[in-house]
């Protein structure tokens, strides 16, 4: 998904980390992710980096976003109370390693490197970059992008994926601050393709059939990424939450939340397929 890390959010994160350091140290420490055997389920400390809209970001002092809604739904499902703390990206990993937090939901991509140190839930989100081109375009794959003018959004995985193909800071890559502008550039002939997150691109192509656009998927060039809940190694919360995630898939709650934030339908089957 949109791993947008704008300068603004960086500054915001910096301020938040500072304030977290100043105020948060005394209150919620000392929790350990060990026993949950008693009837009284303990309150989980969940950490995130609230600078990734629309997954988790600050709105009028409150953390909101897709991940937050998922977390609350899971809390209801499992009976665990949760306390979400915005600690910043790097501290998320430190806290889980030190087991000062029980869990993190922060649009974290599941990869083998991280799996060595942490545990993950089953995937709860699928992110992949796709190519948006005009219907008559001769671009058919990621490799065809070489030599073409490509519009992307600055600091997204889309930009990174494209630059992996054509080279970093290639002058043919036009980077815009918002995805809208990148798509406008394509429509006005200033670019041959837009590479961005599937949700955005598919949504746009679907809602603007008159523009004669098509979406190209290239799984080799743009590998799909799956997000998961991250736990300290050996956490016993895993199975409970995995079950709850599947319940959300089954009862439609997941789709409802997904549509609320992305105005599109999720590919639940693809997500479930990953569990095998």
């Amino acid at each position: 998904m949109k791993k947008k890390l704008s300068i603004f959010s960086l500054v915001l994160a910096f301020i938040l980390v500072l304030s977290a350091c100043a105020s948060g140290s005394g209150s919620s420490s000392g929790s350990s992710a060990s026993s949950s055997s008693g009837t009284q389920k303990k309150t989980l400390r969940v950490v995130d980096d609230a600078t990734y809209a629309p997954f988790e970001y600050m709105d009028k002092g409150k953390i909101v976003g897709f991940d937050v809604d998922i977390l609350n739904a899971l809390s209801k499902e499992t009976g665990y109370k949760v306390q979400l703390a915005n600690v910043g990206w790097d501290p998320v990993f430190v806290e889980l390693k030190n087991k000062t937090a029980d869990m993190s939901i922060s649009a974290i991509t599941i990869n083998s490197q991280r799996k060595q140190t942490y545990d993950f839930s089953v995937p709860y989100f699928l992110s992949t970059n796709k190519i948006l081109v005009k219907k008559n375009s001769n671009i058919k794959s990621g490799a065809d992008l070489k030599g073409k003018v490509i519009a992307v959004q600055t600091a997204t995985t889309g930009q990174a994926a494209v630059e992996k193909i054509v080279g970093q800071n290639n002058p043919n890559v036009k980077k815009f601050k918002t995805i809208n502008l990148a798509i406008m550039e394509l429509l006005n002939g200033g670019a041959d393709a837009v590479v961005a997150d599937n949700t955005v691109i598919e949504e746009y192509a679907k809602n603007n059939p008159g523009q004669n656009l098509k979406v190209i998927m290239d799984k080799k060039a743009f590998a799909p990424e799956f997000y998961g809940l991250m736990y300290p190694k050996g956490s016993n919360l895993r199975s409970v939450f995995d079950k709850a995630i599947n319940t959300l898939y089954a009862n439609g709650t997941y789709t409802k939340i997904y549509q609320k934030w992305f105005k599109a339908s999720p590919d639940v089957n693809e997500l479930k397929a990953q569990q095998k």
Binding site: I7, T154, F176
Partner: peptide
Amino acid sequence: SAIAAPELTYWAQQMGAEYFKV
């Protein structure tokens, strides 16, 4: 820089985004 004309500010934005530096 908003329309991706690669002038000074454009490159500053790209550098900031690449290294997470302000």
